[in-house]
Design a binder for these strands. Sequence first.
DNA 1: ACAAATACTGTTTTT
DNA 2: CAGTATTTGT
Length: 722
Amino acid sequence: MDVSYLIDGLNDFQRAAVSAPEQNMLVLAGAGSGKTRVLTHRIAWLLEVEHIPTYGILAVTFTNKAAKEMRARISSICPQKISGMWIGTFHGIAHRLLRLHFQEANLPEHFQIIDSDDQQKMIKRIIKVLNLDDKYYPSKELQWYINDKKDEGLRAKHIDAGYSLQEKQRLQIYKAYEDACQLAGLVDFSELLLRTHELLLTHPSLLKHYQQRFKHVLVDEFQDTNKLQYAWLTLLTDADNFLTIVGDDDQSIYGWRGADIENIQRFLKEKKNPVTILLEQNYRSTGHILNASNQLIKNNSDRLGKELWTSGEDGERIAIYNAFNEYDETRYVITQIKKWERENKKLCDCAILYRSNAQSRLFEEQLMANQIPYHIYGGQRFFDRLEIKDSIAYLRLMNNHQDDAAFERVINKPKRKIGNTTLDKIRICARDQGYTLWHASHYLIENKLLSAGATRSLGAFVDLINRFKEETTELPLFQLLDHIINHSGLKEMFANEKGEKSRSRIENLEELISASKSFTIPEEEQDMDELTAFLAYAALESGDNQADEFSDAVQLMTMHSAKGLEFAQVFMVGVEEGMFPSQRSTEDPTRLAEERRLCYVGMTRAMQKLTICHADSRRLYGQEKFHSVSRFIAELPEQDIQFIRIKTQTKHNYPSIEKRFSNAISQDVLGFELGQQVKHVKFGEGTIIGQEGSGENSRLQVHFSDVGSKWLMTAYAKLERV
DNA sequence: ACAAATACTGTTTTT
DNA sequence: CAGTATTTGT
């Protein structure tokens, strides 16, 4: 059979990876080295050449987006083989296994997935019900604690509190949370993985079955795996089968949420005869960008070692712009974008990358003011919206009456006269009797333990849910949702809300119904009923966030969310000590190294043009902060960068200084004149010695006796005439 | 049960 | 400073 189409056009190393014999393999794939291509072609190779059946392959990713892309690309290579192949996220695959083996996993048939919001609320309730002070035990911290332990594979019973009272109480909360989830049939994100791991560990025959089935397990972005995910993968491939991991230690930027970079070394040490293949040829960026990125990342120790190169041009040098303040930074970026636009290049090829989300605000404002379309990534996801979660909660409660998280959410939404007093009674009863909230409600009603009014309201709620269930048993999903939204009072409640929100909420509800209408059960999950599959979809899939990705707009996002993307022109902004690296990372070398990797990720997003900005001063938390240039900028080699300075000269063909002094300026620039004595809040007294631009964007050069000459934005510097 | 006042807290995010 | 969370007062 001719399989040349699988390796044609690949470089030697890519080809080696794709056509390697069946073995444990590490593909160390640098940024822009054609990683996804290699991974998908490798899978096609296994199918076509090694004759692995489709069900013999398990491909794991972190995000749904990546899974979707992989599926699409494999199917474009060998369309007839795609069905039946397991491609999914860690959580998605774990969920599928738990559904298939819910009994062995000790879960109720209609168990539900809760997101971290629900999880926090559950924990909060448990802390309260245990009579612990939430001052000493903030739910957020406990949530962290619990997820941390789960990610290490530890349950409450595995942990020894020693003599620490605090640890003892934490464990008590952890335990109570575990019990409450078990009772209610709820599984949080970490639990999906932990449960699956335990399922395989405690059922050797099942484990053996999957080991024999999955001849090859392939993992993308392996540097982001945590301890539990590693254990999961190695357990699954601890037989006559193989594990292929693809990743880049230099792009590990999720250590703070448990990703363990050591997993790569662990793989090399623990797996049988692992072969390493390096992909270093970069098909994305120019020589200057690559060289500078290489130099930067060399400042990290403990790297596996990798150096990107290109056969392409050196390109333009990296521009380093030293802004006076954050306004000037924004102004500069916008000027550059306008210039780009004038060259008839596409706005969507430009990205503004920042370290923290808060930095997007000024850019939004100014882009809006300049009528430049933009798109911000990382907003709230569709299924996370309040109105959507409320509607889904009704679905969940109908599907599984014991779902405490859903119960809490909708019991008094819309208002049905069930207040805190009644709710607390239900919670306490549930705790004392070991019941779920639904069960406790029944108990309280039957034993007449509530006031007449409360009994009536609570009874009405219980009846409502039961009635819904009866009325909708035979309805298709979208009609079911439609029924709930219209008859629960939710729609009315949102419609009566004041302001813009009301309209958008109703729109979202309608979109939810139409989403459910077009929802189809994934092929590999045909065994699930429609409702279960949809609920899982709502919990695990964020809902496509970038709906308008086809519109031509400047892209704004954090450097974290830029990973995996590429843009012709990239602006990295706020590259200052204290911002990037962030203040909190500066003391700890491990975290600093991660910041550096993040910088590396940011830089390697750029294909042609990279601009790095830093501002001398910016307002932060209501205070003016003075930051020095980021050490990362200092680490870039001189021959690859170019410092941009604002020209004092009349590059825009303005009249000469003297002329401007006598006419245009004085009215144009808010009444300041050359030679005028002024006072600045921070810099003291000085003399105006230069001017540039006009109106909002005009700048004045002022010579201060204390700090020398500075360029100031006229509109923001708040200069006082002396 | 709700609005208003006050306190608090400021990386990064997917599932 | 600005946004959220919690507490307070009616």
